[in-house]
Design a binder for these strands. Structure first.
Ligand code: FES
Ligand code: FES
Lengths: 152, 152
DNA sequence: CCTATATTCTATTGTTTTAGTAGGACATTT
DNA sequence: AAATGTCCTACTAAAACAATAGAATATAGG
């Protein structure tokens, strides 16, 4: 159930980009890496992948850098994670973007599958609706439910 | 965001165990493996781990096998996954059972963290309340939300 | 007691994924 | 032309994953 460093760095970089971008300015990899404590060369790859995925654009050359390809309110965390880390679904048989049958004898009566379907929807409901704009402007969501005692 | 084969097999085995156990009967690894299409020797390890984790008990020797250590209604999918796969949280800085700081400059103002906190709670809310008994008796949950168009 | 059938436990293996590093080509500004 | 950037590919070390192997131990049933 875990997000890779690649995914984590990518998200942090995008949030950084969304919060520091204004007007027609661009931001260099180095600037993001320093602010966010991310290895420069690793971040380079990640931003490149996101460029190829259409989430950011870049300007080359000296004083070049990156900027969001779309308004922050139109980029969801779900898009970023899928691009960098693959499907959100915990198990392939409930994935919409990368379905694959599992070794279960009968998928249609599988109890695990129906629970995991709920889990994947719960995750996607959050990640596909939280945009970079929401995150930057501190959209509270419904966190602070610290009375929840379950351990993760 | 994905569940390992180890976790998947473990869950399937426990569900199998919960649905075929009655009275004081025990079920052999081989029986489970055949019904669930799981490699026998791999399942062996997994069940052993769950025995050491206190979720199942066993009877050794001929006509021996495994049985649930507690009533099915008292074993949650969350317990099983944590035992076999570790924390449910997508990122360590929001994990209750295995917290670890990340490289973020400031955890208290991190937007990503607060979103991931919601995600981990959404996952835990489901997995810590769904018991083996629920799964076996086809507790519908709130699946069938096929009008949800997000891709996982 | 013997044998067949189980669990128990440790070690080893091959593959894939992860988390980077390295280095050079290319573009743009100054 | 030099400095500063992105672009792109290849490489690598380490960890995680998905098993497999094999021997030890325990028990039921004849
Ligand atoms: S059908 Fe995928 S886990 Fe059963
Ligand atoms: S504090 Fe963990 S992601 Fe920012």
């Amino acid at each position: 159930m875990r997000l890779s460093k690649r995914g984590e760095y990518g998200l942090r970089a995008m949030i950084d980009l969304a919060s520091w971008t204004q007007d027609g300015r661009v931001i260099s990899i180095k600037a993001i890496a320093e602010r966010e404590n991310i290895p420069v060369k690793f971040l380079e790859q990640i931003l490149l992948a996101m460029k190829n995925g259409g989430l950011v654009n870049s300007r080359m050359g000296a004083s070049g850098g990156y900027y969001l390809a779309k308004p922050a309110a139109q980029i969801t965390l779900g898009q970023i994670i899928r691009l960098l880390d693959g499907p959100l679904a915990p198990i392939r048989c409930v994935s919409q973007m990368a379905y694959e049958p599992c070794s279960c004898p009968d998928e249609s009566t599988c109890g695990l599958r129906s629970v995991m379907f709920d889990v994947r929807n719960a995750i996607a409901d959050i990640l596909d609706h939280q945009t970079l704009a929401d995150v930057v402007h501190g959209q509270p969501g419904n966190n602070l439910k610290l009375n929840e005692m379950s351990k993760s």
